[in-house]
């Protein structure tokens, strides 16, 4: 019985990825390019859903890691790394740095913050808010990285090696390249979520003290998952920089951190796939309605968000997903 329910969940996930892969059949090139960009937001949303939905770690500044990844990638591919590293402009090095830099920052921050016990363990949420605001101000002032104007004409992701060049630039390769990257991230994280370690993650989220009594070192569990999440967010940022070709301080700051929380909350934080879809759906809706409504769009989104928190804490898509799959694996 349990296996059957689990299968139903896998079937839904498979259908979602199949549907996404078929999207270019129904859309123009420009729209395909847009969705490719939203896919990177989707990866970013999954990184937040991993710590928040699974482990109960809320972050009001997750864009810091996305932005660090985007800047690491851009500085590398633009040949702006210091010293002898300058001549290394490979996209692969860019992605490696985009994974490593956010992971190191998250790890160092986590080592300090996970000891905090004031405000019922909400340190991370609040301190990350402060980090986001400070990071945005630093990048605005840092002339070398473009300051307020940001870094322009960031080259596309180059998949070639040994002198060969294959740039992900045309909408269709870009879309499928990003989709494969998103799928890879999804498989990796979903494997973690469904494993024994995933159970421990959810246990820490449900009741940290009791999980500790069962002999788990909850602090290192939190530290590990926070570091992983930051690396994934950085990866999303790197892909975004390669696609968008432009990186500026708002990417690292408060407003994107705010947006990703909304995507994940409305989509559904309890499952990675609903968070991923949440990002894409909200961005599509914003595309369709944003210009029409102006500041009222964000007002409506905030209202929807509050209503969701009160009545549907599993999120709009998450509620549907839980019903369809019979709630298996989705608390």
């Amino acid at each position: 019985m349990k296996a059957l329910l689990k299968d139903r969940r896998s079937a839904v996930d498979l259908a979602v990825w199949g549907g996404l892969a078929a999207l270019p059949l129904f859309m123009g090139a420009w729209q395909v390019g847009q969705i490719a960009q939203y896919l990177t937001y989707g990866i970013f949303a999954m990184s937040l859903a991993l710590i928040w939905g699974q482990c109960g770690l809320l972050s009001f500044g997750h864009a810091v890691f996305f932005g660090l990844g985007a800047y690491a990638m851009s500085l590398t591919t633009l040949g702006m790394l210091p010293g002898w590293l300058e001549s290394w402009t490979s996209s692969y090095l860019g992605v490696a740095l985009a994974l490593a830099v956010p992971a190191v920052v998250a790890n160092v921050l986590g080592r300090f913050l996970f000891y905090g016990r004031g405000l019922q363990g909400a340190q991370l949420a609040i301190v990350m808010l402060a980090v986001a605001v400070v990071a945005e101000r630093i990048m605005t002032r840092w002339g070398y990285a473009g300051g307020m104007n940001g870094l322009m004409s960031v080259p596309p992701v180059n998949l070639g090696a040994f002198g060969l060049v294959y740039e992900l630039y045309d909408p269709l390769p870009l879309f499928y390249g990003t989709l494969i990257a998103a799928l890879a991230v999804y498989i990796l994280l979903e494997a973690l979520v469904r494993s024994r370690r995933g159970v421990v993650l959810r246990a820490v989220g449900a009741d940290e003290a009791r999980t500790g009594f069962l002999g788990h070192d909850t602090r290192s569990v939190k530290l590990a998952v926070f570091t992983l999440s930051a690396a994934v967010a950085g990866f999303a940022g790197a892909l975004f920089a390669g696609q968008f070709g432009f990186v500026s301080p708002p990417l690292i700051g408060f407003s994107l951190s705010t947006e990703v929380l909304i995507w994940v909350a409305l989509g559904g934080r309890r499952a990675l796939i609903t968070a991923f879809l949440g990002a894409i759906v909200v961005r599509l809706a914003e595309n369709a309605l944003g210009d029409l409504l102006g500041p009222a769009w964000l007002l409506g989104l905030g209202l929807l968000f509050v209503l969701c928190m009160i009545f549907l804490p599993r999120g709009l898509l998450g509620e549907v997903y839980a019903r369809v799959t019979g709630g298996a694996g989705v608390r």
Binding site: L261, L298, L299, L301, G302, F305, V306, M309
Partner: peptide, 9 residues
């Protein structure tokens, strides 16, 4: 989160 949604509103 809800109070933060209120702040946006």
């Amino acid at each position: 989160l809800a109070t933060w949604g209120l702040s946006i509103i």
